[in-house]
Structures are given as structure tokens and as C-alpha cells.
Design a protein around this nucleic acid. Sequence first.
DNA 1: CCTCCATCTTGACGTTGACTAGATGCGGTT
DNA 2: AACCGCATCTAGTCAACGTCAAGATGGAGG
Lengths: 216, 216
Amino acid sequence: MNFDATALRRYTHVMAGKDRYHHGDLRNALVDAGLQILETEGIHALTLRAAAARAGVSHAAPAHHFGSLKGLLTALATVAFQRLADCLADASARADGSDPDAARLDASGRAYVRFARANPALFRLMFSGADLDWTEPSLGAAAEDAWGQLTAVVAPIALRRGAVARDTRQALELLVWSHVHGFSHLAISGQLAKPDLNQSGPPELPGIASLLLAGV
Amino acid sequence: MNFDATALRRYTHVMAGKDRYHHGDLRNALVDAGLQILETEGIHALTLRAAAARAGVSHAAPAHHFGSLKGLLTALATVAFQRLADCLADASARADGSDPDAARLDASGRAYVRFARANPALFRLMFSGADLDWTEPSLGAAAEDAWGQLTAVVAPIALRRGAVARDTRQALELLVWSHVHGFSHLAISGQLAKPDLNQSGPPELPGIASLLLAGV
DNA sequence: CCTCCATCTTGACGTTGACTAGATGCGGTT
DNA sequence: AACCGCATCTAGTCAACGTCAAGATGGAGG
């Protein structure tokens, strides 16, 4: 979790109310501020100046820690991928059912969608393409973690389908990822709010495990 | 296609080089300009002022036709949904294979992905959520058209699976849409560029028809 | 105690979306 | 043919933005 006890002590010290020229842990404070703004006001309200104001520093302070707005967005996306990976791992561990493999897959899928619905602006940012600096190693590592959590629950299903070849296995991983990612994206885009789709309540993620295991 | 011969005549007349105070068809000119900017320079370069400059009018002119930036984006997304619907209809019509239903479904899916890959910024805009004005009826109608093209190719497959109930059928439609939409989004986000996914060439959209028809 | 330098502030510049007031000229009316 | 209403477009302005440059501050190591 990149926990820095010294920095945190200084940070909480400042949080207690003591204003000082040197913040102590401005970088983390700005990330927190950014996450809050993203959650409460959306992506358009997330500006370097707004984050600085929320952290109680001058408008140009963020530049020293993130270089540019892209840097701040990259830091936020990194945290987001880490949180997503945690959610997926947690859901997989808690999954319960008569078919454990299938239960873990479906539970992970639902967790993916739940994460997107709970953090729509953040989710969008994670997959916003050119807005992020993918040369930043920590971002790539966090994204790999999340991807790894997903492939881990697909692997047993793939084996039971007889998908031993690397290509076949990766095609299944990609199928599952596309499925949950597409559903998540449609959900937070409001595309699932069509009246004819809501006559039986809000749409739920169609389970993929049973489909993949049909006829096996 | 909302073809307005009179407006077009004036528009082309202006295009011929004659500068006049009244443009003649500024609205369409601004949409064209917006599409070009989106394609060549990306979403961040798409500003009201840039579109105005490309159309050769003053910086405040777009406001009279679109009200705000949101209005221009909405107009662009409307055109985009219409084009997507056309692409899907075309792909379905041209599809060819031993199983026509399956061929049409897979061809439509590939067309969806091809559209996204060919127009990444536009595709992102179409599903950008709060950036668009969904109270605009034309936008909703265009989106419904595209959605209708997709459900049309899913319906035969659903019937062959015995999905006669409305809920079951809609779940399948949603499954297919999630699949192609998620893959498209991952593709244009660069998430499919992972080295371990490209050892057998760039990933292709996993066919969904054979999966849905397995064991039928 | 003193110096170094990362950290933070202040001020400025160019660009943006949005608003206002005024100029223009097309299309319908007389 | 002359007129005029009004949609269309221009010009000017404002606050907010990202970014840069220059200076102030104060903690860490000698």
C-alpha cells in the first residue's frame, strides 16, 4: 500500500489544523482531494486548482508533485486500479456456490460492475486512453494487478472447457473482460436506462460462467 | 439523412470561396469541422473556437446554433450514432456463411468494433455520459436506431436458444452488446496492447454466435 | 549554527466557454 | 420595388483554466 509512516504522521499533524508553509504530505493530500472531487462533482470539476484549493495550498503547488494535470490523473488512475484489484480479489475470495469456479467468476464479474457503478468518473478515467501517462510504471503495474485478478478466475473455467492452448485461454480471458467491461461502461453511460430494458427492474450483469460451461 | 438541398446549395456556394456575412449552412459546417477535429486532433482539440475557426466564422458564432459546447458534442454524437447504425445494417446485409444467423451476428459485432477503432474519439464521445444532452430527441432516436440494428441480429439466435420470454431475450441482447462494446472500448483504450496478448498478433473480437449456439 | 535545495507562493500569460451588445442581410409583407 | 422583422453573425469582455517563471520558506544534513 506504499505506506509511509513518517509522511502520514506529518500529514495527520497538518490535518489537525496547524498551517505550515511546507504541507508535509501534499502529494497524498492532492490525490485524496482529487478522488473526492471526482466522486462528488465529476471529472469536469477536477482541476489542478480545485485540488490545490481543497488541499489548502496555492494553485501552482500541484505542479511540483505531478508536473501537469496528466500527472495527477495518472496518480488517481493508479489508485483506482489498485482498488479495483482489491475489490476483485475480495469478491473472488468471498464467492460461494455449488460450483466454486463458476461462483468465483460470476462474483468477480459482479464486483467489477459494482466498482464501476460506485465510481463512475474514476472508472471512466482509468480507461480514458490518452489522458493518462502509461509510461508511468506504477500505473501499468496496478492495471496488471487488476487484469491478473480477472484472469485468475477465468483460468479454471478455461481448463474445464479444454482450453489448454495459450491462445484459446487468452481468448476466453478477453471474452470475459469484454463482457464485464462493456456492461460496466454501458451502465455508467446511462445506456441501460432505456425504458424497455427496465420493465423487469434495472438490468443485471448476465452471468457468463454458465454460458461458458454449457455442454461441458 | 436530413438532406436539405437549399441549405446545401448555399453551403457549397460559400465553400466555393465567396465570403459572406451569413454563412448559409453554418450548423452543418460546424458539425463537419467538429468531426474533422475529432478525427485528426482528438477530443481535447475540439473546442467551440477551433470549430468556428475551421468554419471561418467568429468565435461566438457556434453558440447561436448549439447553445454551448455540450450542444455541439450532442450534434456530433447524433451523427455518430447514425453512422454506427448504418455500419451495422451494412455489415448484417453483407454477411455470408453457412449459418446466416450466426454470420450476421458475428459480422455485426466485427463492424461495431471496426467503427470504434476507426473513430475512437467519436466512439468515446458517444458513450461519455454527462457530456451529452440526452434530452435532445434526435440523439436518443439515433442511439435507438443503432441499438435496434444490434437487437435485430440477436433475435434469431435468441429464438434458436428457446429464449421466447422478453426478459431472456433482452438478457441475450445485453450480453452481446456488452461483449462487443467492452471489446471496442478496451481496444481503443490501448488495453489490448499488452505484450502477452499480442504474441499471436493483435487480438480479434472473440466470436459470440458459436458460444451462444453451443449445445443447441 | 549555517547552508542547501526541495517545497510552496505569487504573479503572469495565453486559451477556453460563456455572456452581452451591436452589425448584417435574408425573406416575407406591403 | 421598398420596407422591415428577426435570425444570424461579429466584437468585446469576463472568470477560470493549465502552465511557466521567479522568489519566499524552512527542514535536513554538515
